[in-house]
Design a protein around this nucleic acid. Structure first.
Length: 791
RNA sequence: GCGCUCGUAGCUCAGUUGGAUAGAGCGUUGGCCUCCGGAGCCAAAGGUCGUGGGUUCGAAUCCCGCCGAGCGCACCA
């Protein structure tokens, strides 16, 4: 089906050919929007483009073309060289509702990889930017009709996990069993955490636990010489180590203490290497502890992101890339294509003995002093970049191998993780490898249901709509409310045996987006170059690094925290800069869950000040609304900036609910729906936008301002396309914000229910109804922002 | 040294790919709730778009130079 804009382009192209004898590709005809809606619904500047070849002034050309008949266009008015289109309003509304302004869809599955947090500490605001941008991209691609698979890569074998293991074993002196107990205790806490309502209770239980049985057993006090922190763990709702009662947060604090501990002696440093070796060897307590920590950490991260409506389809694990022989296959291909060569061991080259990829031939890397990139070290081990190339090949279905898969246990929704296949035989879980992997959990039940429903079309977890994904408690679900999957699925869990589960066919995408911050641009370029050198030019072209700038902490904010007693190793020079980079290793950052707690607390207070009764009568509703507000505030904050803008995180700015914020957009929607509700209560008929008769009746009575408001939504599909093409997703946020702002102005100036003229009133009710529907849809589908019924 | 990015109102940022009078939010000042919830609306003040050249009907946007800032350029991930 021809979309509106392309139909206009073709008609104009034909007209230009006929009238001026100039051949202009339809796609070359530029369509934009007038700066003010009263100037028109859409505009083209094609007359300017024709001025030069025709040697005639733009205004004259525009005038000559103004009579062109375009589908759905009732009039073309010229203003200088501009040609402003006024649409037939009934036609336009119909198109708005049927997505008639969407560009034509494209076939082929797109793989989006995002989040990718090292599973050794809590997520911080920088990870949130990654996840929100990644998820928003996914939503935009789906809106445009693409099929999307979402991957969250888990590096469960690296030094970061090893460091936390060292922290537990060597600094705290804990055994595998102690970590297991801690996780069990924390999991219990996690069910209720996330609100100040429960905070004191948590802190009390926490202190009781440590005081009564564990504090002196583990000898936790004053453990690390040379550390400024007087106690190993903060006593209360401490700012930077905060979010008490959460395992990921506990590890955040612990991890920050490992680097100083390494600095104490060479012996300590050796612990990292020893740990890495044990992890690699497997079949020992250290390796098991690492796996335990990584898995629980991923669970924490999944929950954090799920609260924001961010989901994944599959969790590729680095350990499985290694165990499944991905690298061996990739290495063969690299060697066979001549993309890598070995530097002779006897040479003077600093890379002697390594397998390197030569980059000097490539335009992208010219001017580099050292144009060779080491892929395999002289000791025969593969670098990160090599593993990433293998992963990238798999994403495009070029590797000739696949993972095995199993449900990821204990996730807040059904999700698959990779598996090495044979590794399960030696799994310590013991009770028969296959049965353990496919145990009848809620997750596997839902997954088997999904695959039973259709062996061809697979329901991906990340495709679930906000409306259906959240239980009745709303977005922020915890473990005890049905895992957010709804009651129906949960009921079937018990009756489903260890049925043969068929995971969807992961990987083999037609295009790939890697959402990774800009600091990795160089490495991502090399991965792309690797594809090219392996003669996969087409895939290299379709391999997109979505690079965005980092989130740092504004020094203003850091200073204010230090004045409140927070402790950081920062020089005066660093504090003189506008912002400081976050560092998990230093414990310098702001944890995601803590930010969300703060937002929720702020929202709870705001709601209570407006509706004091609610807090007393319906706490669940109170919290539900607060969570929706927090999600909106956070997601909008993360997406409203240009991707090239360093976000200097400032708590006060992030916590704002007024002005250019998520709640402002929700408020517009809530007010609109409230007007409709009030109208219905008073017995007024609200015209149904989908009813052609009602539409025909109302269309002549739209006020110009109301129409201008609705016409903003015609821009959305085009803006989304533009946002995806440029990866500047703030365009989408901005567009919906503009619409919300226009509505606030509109209803202040135009009474709806009070309007005495029935025809005008009906048209205004229709305007409000359309606005509410389009904004709610846009916020949910594009930005992942839920709208509560009331605020 | 080489490469990438940024510099727009007091502050934080937009600016629809070169187009219409450079716009929002915060903050400041002054108005607006017996009337669809004030998380809102209206108005005022606030700009040499870092700077100097160039390209053309037209430049915040493209090109070149300079000034200032950030990030990359490992046998780390």
């Amino acid at each position: 089906m021809l979309t509106a804009v392309s139909a206009w382009q073709e008609a104009l192209s034909a007209e230009i050919q006929a009238r001026f004898g100039v051949a202009l590709e339809p796609a070359q005809i530029p369509f934009t929007f007038p700066p003010k809606t009263e100037l028109g619904d859409a505009a083209t500047t094609v007359a300017f483009a024709l001025a030069k070849p025709l040697r005639r002034p733009p205004a004259e050309i525009a005038g000559a073309l103004a009579g062109t008949r375009l589908p759905g266009v009732s009039e073309i008015r010229t203003a200088g060289g501009y040609m402003n289109l006024f649409l037939d309003r009934g036609w336009a509304v119909e198109r708005l509702l049927s997505r008639g302004f969407l560009p034509a869809g494209v076939e082929g599955k797109i793989i989006v990889e995002h989040t990718n947090i090292n599973p050794n500490k809590a997520a911080h605001v920088g990870h949130l930017r990654n996840a929100v941008l990644g998820d928003t991209l996914v939503r935009c691609l789906r809106y445009l009709g693409r099929k999307v698979e979402v991957q969250n890569y888990i590096d469960d074998t690296g030094v970061q996990v090893a460091d936390v293991v060292v922290g537990f074993q060597r600094i705290l002196g804990w055994k595998l069993e102690d970590v297991r107990n801690l996780i069990a205790l924390m999991a219990d806490f996690s069910e209720t955490s996330g609100s100040f309502l429960f905070l004191q209770e948590l802190i009390d239980r926490w202190h009781e636990y440590w005081r009564e049985e564990n504090l002196h057993r583990f000898g936790l006090n004053g453990l690390i010489p040379g550390q400024a922190c007087p106690t190993p763990f903060p006593p209360a709702y401490d700012f930077f180590h905060g979010a008490m009662g959460r395992f990921d947060s506990f590890c955040w604090g612990l991890y920050a203490r490992v680097a100083p501990w390494y600095a104490l002696s060479d012996e300590n440093k050796q612990a990292r290497l020893d740990t890495l070796h044990l992890m690699e060897a497997g079949d020992n307590d250290t390796a098991e502890m690492a796996a335990l920590i990584a898995e629980e950490m991923v669970r924490c991260h999944l929950r954090t992101m799920d609260w924001l409506g961010i989901r994944y389809d599959v969790l590729p694990h680095e350990s499985d890339i290694l165990k499944t022989g991905f690298w061996a296959s990739c290495f063969e291909k690299l060697k066979a294509s001549g993309a890598v060569h070995q530097v002779p061991a006897g040479s003077e080259d600093k890379n002697r003995g390594c397998w390197v990829m030569a980059l000097q031939e490539s335009e992208e890397f010219k001017g580099m002093s050292d144009a060779d990139k080491v892929i395999v070290r002289s000791n025969g081990t593969v670098t990160y970049i090599g593993k990433d190339m293998a992963y990238q090949l798999w994403k495009f279905g070029l590797l000739g191998r696949d993972f095995h898969y199993r449900p990821f246990p204990g996730a807040p929704y059904p999700i698959w993780r990779t598996d090495a296949g044979t590794a399960m035989e030696s799994s310590p879980a013991g009770e028969g490898a296959t049965a353990a992997a496919c145990a009848p959990s809620k997750a596997s039940a839902v997954l088997s249901k999904a695959s039973a429903a259709s062996s061809e079309s697979v329901i991906l977890a990340s495709e679930a709509r906000p409306e259906s994904r959240a239980g009745k408690e709303g977005f922020r679900t915890s473990r005890n409310d049905g895992m957010g999957t709804g009651a129906a699925e949960a009921e079937t869990a018990g009756s489903t045996g260890a049925a043969a589960l068929a995971p969807p066919h992961f990987g083999a995408g037609a295009g790939v987006y890697n959402v990774i911050d800009v600091r990795q641009s160089y490495l991502q370029k090399i991965v792309k170059e690797g594809l090219r050198q392996m003669d996969h030019e087409k895939e290299a072209e379709r391999s997109v690094h979505y690079a965005y700038e980092m989130v740092a902490l504004s020094t203003k904010f850091v200073r204010s925290e230090m004045e409140k007693g927070a402790h950081f190793e920062l020089s005066e020079e660093e504090l003189a800069k506008p912002f400081v980079e976050m560092s998990g290793r230093k414990g310098l950052g702001f944890q995601a869950d803590l930010l969300m707690d703060r937002m929720k607390d702020r929202a709870l207070a705001e709601i209570e000040s407006r509706e004091p009764e609610l807090a007393k009568t319906d706490r669940a509703q109170w919290e539900h609304r607060a969570e929706a507000l927090a999600t909106a505030a956070l997601r909008f904050y993360m997406v409203k900036y240009n991707k090239n803008q360093v976000v200097a995180f400032d708590l006060e700015q992030a916590l704002a609910f007024e002005g250019d914020t998520g709640p402002y957009l929700q408020y517009a929607c809530v007010r609109a729906e409230n007007i409709l509700r009030k109208a219905a209560e008073q017995g007024l008929a609200v015209p149904d936008p989908a009813d052609p008769a009602a539409l025909a009746e109302c269309a002549p009575h739209f006020d110009e301002e109301g129409w201008g408001l609705l016409s903003l939504f015609m821009r959305v599909p085009i803006q989304v396309k533009m946002a995806v093409d440029s990866l500047d997703l703030n365009i989408v946020a901005r567009q919906l914000y503009d619409a919300a702002q226009a509505f606030h102005g509109y209803y202040h100036h135009f009474p709806v229910i009070q309007e005495p003229d029935p025809a005008k009133r009906a048209a205004r009710l229709l305007t409000v109804a359309l606005f509410a529907r389009l904004l709610r849809e846009g916020l949910g589908q594009l930005l992942g922002i839920p709208v509560p019924d009331r605020m």
